Simulated scan of single mutants.
Amino acid sequence: MLVKRFCTPLAILAALAGPVVAQPTFIPPTELAAASSPKALFAPLNALALAGGRMVAAGQRGHILYSDDGKAWQQAQVPVSSDLTALAFPSAQHGWAVGHEGVILHTTDGGATWSKQLDGRQIAELVSKRYGAPANAGDAEAQRLQQEAEGLAAQGADKPLLDVWFEDELKGFAIGAFNLILRTEDGGKSWTPWLDRIDNPRGMHLYGIRPAGGSLFIVGEQGLVLKLDAAGQRFQQQHLPYEGTLFGLVGNAEMVLVYGLRGNAYRSVDGGANWSKVETQVRAGLTAGIALDDGSIVLVSQAGHILRSQDQGANFLPIKPSRVAANFAVAPAAGGAVALAGVGGVRVENLQ
């Protein structure tokens, strides 16, 4: 008996195309652990920090590495593969890392293993809950905060966090793009948005947060400098005679130095009330800085410059590097040297 086989046009096309290949399922970086790779140490690294005597570095694809002697490095266990931008260690054991997709990571063993405390999706929920529909529809500030919250929520999980700082194992801040600022007082178990406690109505990106000059400062886009009013628990804008982007700040109890695009740096010795321009003789972006135990200040650039000041940041002299490479982070190293992280991993440079 002849049986006729009927094929639809779609079935014919499928047969001609061959067997169906299953498409891989997309896993967001916030849910995908960082891959272990011997190349991680040589990939671009964005952050360096000291966890007691241990050095910790972080960078692309969730890679975190640590070394107890600055020579042999091990890759940490990290539950995300998001690019990481900053590290903070208030003690030898407890540390935090932040990065893209709004990730906040925590370690309790000096950087060997990490757990996720927060991500961009959760941040959107926190912001929406805190700044939802205002009770008073005529309150202009409340409406602005609601619009800002709606904008952050609309971004989805993509909320880059760009810096983190902790004063101890409980209290700290994480800051990032579009005026994103979060506060914790319980070691990251809970985070509170501080959008209503910062004078940044235009929603500028926040790039750096550090204590200096007797207070806590934040720097960001278009010359933005903010200083924490401890009594009012609010970051208040300070006037700076410069409108370019600032990538970070460094200082000591008496002085604060802010730095950024095209080698620009400004210094204040009165808590941010007045600023003087520092001539760095550099035209590349200054990306990181530290104050060393001997009182000197070191700045580094994306073009490989190393600058050192021995007069509280008033003047800087260049240090010739052993190898020129883009620098994204700097930390103290043994023997008065500095460790640099950037393109090509971590290297140590002497300052003599």
Results as ranks from 00 to 15, higher is better:
Arg61Ala: 09
Gln74Asn: 11
Asn264Pro: 02
Asn200Ala: 07
Asp196Tyr: 04
Trp114Glu: 00
Ile198Gly: 02
Leu162Tyr: 02
Ser36Thr: 12
Asp311Ile: 06
Gly304Ile: 00
Gly342Ser: 07
Ala149Thr: 02
Gln146Ala: 12
Trp275Pro: 00
His100Lys: 08
Gln93Asn: 10
Ser268Trp: 07
Ala265Gly: 06
Ser37Gln: 10
Val3Met: 15
Gln312Thr: 11
Gly336Ser: 13
Lys320Cys: 13
Gly156Glu: 09
Glu169Met: 11
Arg234Lys: 12
Phe247Glu: 01
Gly187Phe: 04
Ser301Tyr: 00
Lys71Pro: 02
Ala137Asn: 12
Lys116Cys: 01
Ala288Cys: 09
Ala333Gln: 02
Pro318His: 06
Pro19Gln: 10
Asn179Glu: 10
Ala333His: 02
Lys129Tyr: 14
Lys39Ala: 15
Asn252Tyr: 06
Leu292Tyr: 05
Val20Met: 03
Ala124Thr: 00
Gly335Asn: 07
Gly187Tyr: 04
Gly95Leu: 03
Val21Ile: 14
Asn136Ile: 03
Leu286Thr: 04
Leu180Arg: 06
Gly335Val: 03
Glu167Val: 13
Leu299Pro: 01
Val164Phe: 00
Gly172Asp: 10
Asp293Phe: 08
Gly62Arg: 01
Leu340Arg: 04
Asn264Val: 15
Gln122His: 10
Lys159Met: 07
Ala40Arg: 01
